[in-house]
Design a binder for these strands. Structure first.
Lengths: 236, 236
DNA sequence: CGAAGCCTTGATGCGCCTCAACGTACGTGG
DNA sequence: CCACGTACGTTGAGGCGCATCAAGGCTTCG
């Protein structure tokens, strides 16, 4: 038999804030831990939502496929976040696919336990709905951005978001701590890998970022913030 | 004292489906009805979320303002829908403004009653979260569209959505039943009123729509569906 | 060591924004 | 009821931002 999951793993994560240890034990005992290797999928768009998940370690890329085969990446999930919670919103299928952007450790619960879980642990329900609210707000913010900002601004913003979410301090600057390709960025921002490449090259020339293969380091974040806000570089 | 609100007003609306009449009475007794004239605002972006609302009649335009003063319209609310339900997601302020697109009748509840209400009437909570789920899915769909579809497709789609939501059959075709300007459409699709005007003129020449001042009638919906799906008009 | 995946950089063109000007319906007050 | 002002709509000309097409270099891994 598998060992019990450690409460310490999740106790301090936002989804479980304010929940006492006994309840936590109860919740954890319904979960199953598993590993997902980079590139593997946790679940598939339009697939039946049989489980919901908590990301313990790693990074998940959420991917939507359009009818004509293009990909859009509406968000990245990082450690400590719930995902695949279609069931919380009474949906029967996942609205997008979830791909491991790096090696991951996830907890999963059968969807069937959801109703009992929120009934028994209202704090957990509250926390979850707060998360949903944040995601809805973020998504609407994306709509606004796509509708009004130029590519340059959107790409700068995407890099800043990634750096904030999963950045690690290094001597060089803030390193985005999992493999990200130019194509990934383009799918987050509704542009092409070519345009992203050109932009990043120009920023690298200016010394604002450092980038290599699947690797981005933010050197002068504040400069990118200006770009993201549509400030034109010094028009003399 | 004001008369009690009629249960018949809301009994058959989706947010109240599956709720017995006694509970309905209870819920309704906490509500207040009011009228909002076209152009007036029900609530303001970033304002404190003191109430949540149900639209009984009319149409509400949801508007987001960008830092640099541009407007984006992420959705329209039509009769029978809840709106301003920030509180359901533990948010303290409204993420957008709500403007009456036509004369409206709305019910409103003080935010303070929310928690008691969902506790006492779980069916209502479930219905609400289903709505939230649908909106999140729609919003993500918008992101995909803005990221991948050309203006032409997006505008066609916006008109189709409006026609589906609030269209009224007339001898000419399906009439969008409240005033919509070219600018409104452009703010829904992230383009300019000029481009919308040009597109609609060309569709009018083809006989696919009829349009006048603040008025749009869909004559050949299936043609617009093709445009929305990116089918190029007959390339021989 | 070769192949596949990732990145870069140029050339070209077009979709759509921007700027500009004018036409048209509405409603408001004299 | 007509005259005017205002808001809405149309249409043209011009140009820029970014996609598209094309070619080649670099890294990683089997």
């Amino acid at each position: 038999m598998t060992p019990r999951l450690e409460i310490a793993l999740v106790r301090d994560l936002p989804p479980f804030s304010g929940i006492d240890e006994k309840s936590l034990r109860d919740i954890l005992d319904m979960a199953r831990a598993s590993r997902v290797k980079v590139g593997e999928r946790v679940f598939e768009q339009d697939g039946e939502a049989r489980e919901f998940f908590l990301l313990l370690d790693g990074n998940i890329r959420v991917v939507k496929l359009t009818p004509d085969g293009e990909q859009v990446v509406p968000r990245y999930i990082s450690a400590g976040e719930l995902f695949g919670i279609a069931r919380a919103l009474n949906m029967e299928t996942y609205p997008a696919s979830a791909v491991a952007a790096s090696d991951c450790v996830v907890l999963s619960w059968p969807t069937a336990v959801w109703d009992g879980l929120v009934a028994k642990h209202p704090t957990f329900a509250t926390n979850t709905y707060r998360t949903v609210g944040k995601r809805l707000a973020e998504t609407q913010q994306q709509v606004v951005e796509l509708a009004t900002a130029r590519v340059e601004q959107r790409v700068a913003n995407a890099i800043l978001k990634l750096a904030n979410q999963t950045g690690r301090r290094t001597p060089e600057g803030i390193l985005i701590d999992f493999p990200v390709t130019r194509q990934d960025i383009s799918e987050m921002t509704g542009t092409t890998l070519h345009t992203v490449s050109r932009l990043m090259s120009s920023w690298e020339d200016l010394g604002w970022v450092k980038s290599g293969l699947k690797m981005i380091t933010l050197v002068e974040g504040h400069k990118l913030v200006l770009v993201a806000n549509g400030v034109k570089p010094d028009k003399r």
